[in-house]
Nucleic acid binder design. Structure first.
Length: 296
DNA sequence: CATCGACCCTGCGGGC
DNA sequence: TGCCCGCAGGGTCGAT
């Protein structure tokens, strides 16, 4: 469910409650909140001070003053909530963290259990230490490590649908199904076009669209369709009203009026405007025309 | 290697 | 009313 803007909204909400504080207690309430293999029991970070709360793409890292990392991923339905200690235990409560506040605690709740909270070891990346689970994840578009030229050249080598590549977290992280569809719509690129057949200009336009749409969403506190995505105070984001493609099947495209279509591939839905986002690029269409003329 | 589908899990809404 | 199906902002893994 949550993509970069939603995870960043959570990070910003969580930071004041945990950064500079000690993890007094961390408790695995229910398995599933810890499905991914954990390097050590959660309790091994009790007593550690949280120096910083860092995000790469959709992954969160509680940077500690010890040789371990506390990491988390929200999966499809994970939530971090600031909750009164005395509040009833939620049905899908997985992990609770005592951050030293007298009245409140941090709770990790996850209905579908694709999310996790785990301990990771630290590994070297360039000249710094990062959690092992971050190592496979490419920097997101807002990261100072993001190398636009290198990313464009990765796109130009992928023999796969452009939408798949956008969702590939080892190329560029943070983009999920909503913002992939939104960015492709803005860049007027059909989701099934082959990545390496796009021009450098098209990929560049697409990256600008990714950046634009995710910054706009972040300003609105992310996208919420229901109470599965909420910030740490239980509030929804408002970007959903600005979606142009995702979830807009049969609605008119705001640029040309054509009905937005939904197709499925790669086990997910893609929404696009068949007119604005032709399957073949204008250039290729042009070439095909020439061939037809030649053949006469 | 690179690519792709299946799969993990729970709950909801629509069609019958 | 109930049941069954498809669908959902995620990643990982094994087969090819």
């Amino acid at each position: 469910m949550p993509e970069l803007p939603e995870v960043e909204t959570v990070r910003r909400g969580l930071a004041p409650w945990i950064v500079g504080k000690k993890i007094k207690k961390i408790e695995l309430v229910h398995k599933g909140g810890n499905r991914s293999s954990t390097y050590a029991p959660l309790s091994s970070v009790e007593g550690a001070k949280v120096e910083n709360l860092v995000r790469r793409g959709k992954f969160l890292w509680f940077e500690l003053n010890r040789d371990l990392a506390l990491v988390a991923h929200l999966g499809m339905s994970g939530q971090f909530i600031i909750q009164r200690r005395s509040a009833d235990v939620e049905k899908h409560l997985r992990v609770r963290i005592d951050c030293g506040d007298r009245k409140r605690e941090i709770r990790f709740i996850d209905q579908r259990t694709f999310g996790w909270v785990a301990i990771d070891k630290l590994v070297r990346e360039d000249d710094e230490l990062i959690p092992q689970s971050f190592a496979r994840i490419a920097p997101d578009i807002f990261d100072k490590k993001f190398d636009r030229t290198a990313v464009i050249s990765k796109f130009q080598k992928k023999n796969s649908a452009i939408k798949r590549v956008l969702l590939d977290q080892s190329v560029m992280s943070g983009v999920g199904n909503i913002y992939a569809d939104e960015a492709l719509w803005r860049a007027a690129i059909h989701p099934e076009r082959i990545s390496k057949k796009l021009s450098e200009q098209e990929i560049s336009t697409l990256l600008d669209a990714v950046s634009f749409v995710m910054s706009e969403a972040l300003k609105q506190g992310g996208t919420s369709f229901d109470d599965l995505y909420i910030n740490v105070n239980g509030e929804s984001g408002y970007f959903d009203v600005e979606l142009e493609a995702y979830g807009q099947e049969d609605e008119p495209c705001s640029r040309c009026g054509t009905q937005i279509r939904r197709i499925t591939f790669g086990n997910r839905s893609s929404h696009f405007c068949p007119t604005c986002q032709p399957k073949r690029s204008a250039k290729r269409k042009d070439e095909a025309k020439k061939v037809r003329v030649k053949r006469g």
